[in-house]
Design a protein around this nucleic acid. Structure first.
Lengths: 353, 353
DNA sequence: AAATTTACCTGTAACGTTTCAGATTTTTAC
DNA sequence: GTAAAAATCTGAAACGTTACAGGTAAATTT
């Protein structure tokens, strides 16, 4: 009775409205309200209108736990990431792109990282066992990918950022790394380069193979030769990449063209090359893919292709949503082609030097 | 009866176990099982042991929707991000750090971006209205931040990446930008620099103020003068930063020292400085904060402080979890101090040139 | 006018969990 | 040997939702 001992303090938020609230306010049954909000055919149109009005007025939002418990629908998209992902803005862009699409829907984005390559399956199994997502987005795809196999078997909608080679028609979005590598060779040969090195990802990834194929096709078509990068990949530590690049640059016949699949690796490459006294754009040309526009700020001479990861995020999100809605996997496959950067504002800086 | 028309195909996953399953297998009541798994004091210790054994055997995981519906506990931490966040790996690192901590718990990480500064409150209100998270992590903090106010009022556990000045004791983790700016001036003066410019974030952010304070204190203590950056901030587009840096570098008395609060801005600064024909380390020194080690790969001469955003992520996650567990906000406040990079491997590259 | 159809609405049950208020058995106290 | 206390266990109810099986009244058919 005392003012201070009230259950509900003055600042308490209004109780969250439920179907019951709306049912009470409209004088209808809970079922009717539920069906009205779903635009079911057996509800009168004026009733629907009335229910919708009240629902809007109250700011009704369906309780996700209720829906999930009853129907199993989580309204969650899981983004499964390896923590070894590229540093330079990749995840950021991907998340932004996905969110752009999910923003207009009831879906939430849950980010689920896993530590090591061995644990690849852990988050997938967790999602399968607990039913904690309606759809999954994975990256760092391998040609024969166990994650793809198990999600296909268990009928969990998913999309891959990258392609597999498993004879399973699944949704994917990919960047055309084959075309990139091929065109990169072409660009280098056009600049008179003949001895070319390819810094590719680890061989287990699908895009290693794609870039190798494009690269080798390019070597043949444009008549250049390969200089080996040894065991160095884009996953190698930057220090080691730098060291390797320096050693390679001091060879009697060093490469005069280098193609890199990763922006951060390129930074280390440049350091190594220049440490050996070779000059970019003069002694050697570098072609690099990047996920954020930054290499040309540093060295305008670099030929760059910026993979639009944000766009990839949008495509991936749209694909997985469509898959959840039952669209055939074959209709949810897309590939981005490389776009070569025109020399940007920094080219002026270069000329001024 | 026909093999093909069975309800449960050979590949069907075993039904997910629930408390009911365990109750049935142990011959106990559902309540008992529930209490046993929570280690409640009114359950016999041998019963507990038995229940735990069966639960482990079955791979029992509590149904999150059930828990959430009944208790309101979501087991979700929401990371609220502005899409204008720094490009170079910031989000990535933050997410990784948070996940590292959440990985050992029942909590999931939901990433909730919002588009514009105007919409700052939208995701917060959504979370409050729908109870969709047990805790919230926000960044880009303002001295008087409406998000902090409303979450405090409504008693929603949260932690800020940055400090406020509202007289509200709330959990935060921050980088000591004041110390950074102060020490940056010191470093520059030590190198004989006297006319110093500060590229700070927009003035509405708390860390603008902190860096200004440290900067101005440094100017006084070490007897240097300021060269204005005009309206240029770390949020200005890279093109404009470059243009401003170039113009500034062509002044009759250009700055001989520049302090930058953002790694990507520094790239644009460098481009502008060099476009004007000035040389880093010779005519002008640059001090920069960065969230990933990359500036010294590019220009070894830059004095860098790398903010360990991954560590920040861990601290933020730990703080918000502790806050959920009722730990006093005042005990959940931490500040990282600047760590100046020793010249790394690239310094060799620099010397070799 | 009766039978049938149509249009519209609704109560019950269930999803998996926890809280509450007991219930039963065993132990302790006297 | 009985009363009280302690130790263990449990069913019912509720969180918010939707599927199901039906109910009622009006409109249509015959």
């Amino acid at each position: 009775m005392d003012e201070k001992s009230r259950r509900i303090p003055a600042t308490a938020p209004a109780e969250r409205p439920t179907l019951k609230t709306i049912a009470y306010m409209t004088g209808l049954g809970i079922t009717t309200v539920s069906r009205a909000l779903k635009d079911a055919p057996d509800i009168g149109s004026d009733t629907k209108e009335r229910v919708r009005l009240v629902a809007r007025q109250l700011g009704y939002q369906p309780n996700r736990a209720g829906v999930r418990l009853r129907t199993g629908k989580t309204n969650v998209i899981a983004l499964v990431l390896s923590i070894e992902q590229e540093l330079m803005g990749f995840t950021n862009q991907l998340v932004q792109g996905i969110s752009e699409v999910l923003g207009g829907t009831q879906y939430h984005l849950v980010v689920t990282p896993h530590s090591f390559e061995k644990d690849q399956m852990v988050p997938i199994r967790y999602i399968l066992d607990t039913g904690s997502a309606d759809g999954v987005i994975i990256s760092r795809i391998e040609p024969d990918d166990p994650r793809v196999r198990v999600m296909t078997e268990r009928n969990l909608p998913f999309v891959t950022h990258g392609r597999t080679d498993m004879g399973i028609g699944h949704p994917f979005h990919d960047f055309d790394n084959e075309a990139y590598a091929y065109q990169a060779v072409e660009q280098l040969v056009k600049r008179g380069r003949k001895r070319i090195a390819l810094l590719a990802p680890q061989s287990r990834f699908s895009y290693h193979i794609h870039s190798r194929i494009g690269f080798e096709r390019g070597l043949v078509d444009f008549q250049a030769t390969e200089v080996s990068m040894g065991r160095t990949t884009t996953e190698t530590s930057l220090d080691e990449i730098r060291a390797y690049a320096e050693r390679m640059s001091r060879l009697p016949e060093p490469p005069d063209g280098i193609i890199s699949l990763s922006g951060s690796s390129s930074i280390a490459m440049i350091a190594g090359i220049e440490a050996a006294g070779r000059r970019l754009g003069k002694d050697v040309d570098l072609v690099s893919k990047q996920s954020a526009e930054f290499l040309n700020w540093i060295r305008p001479e670099i030929l760059t292709v910026t993979e639009d990861v944000r766009h990839a995020g949008r495509e991936l999100a749209k694909a997985v949503l469509a898959r959840i809605d039952g669209v055939a996997p074959e209709l949810l496959q897309s590939i981005d082609i490389p776009v070569w950067s025109a020399m940007g504002p920094t080219s002026r800086a270069a000329r001024a030097e």
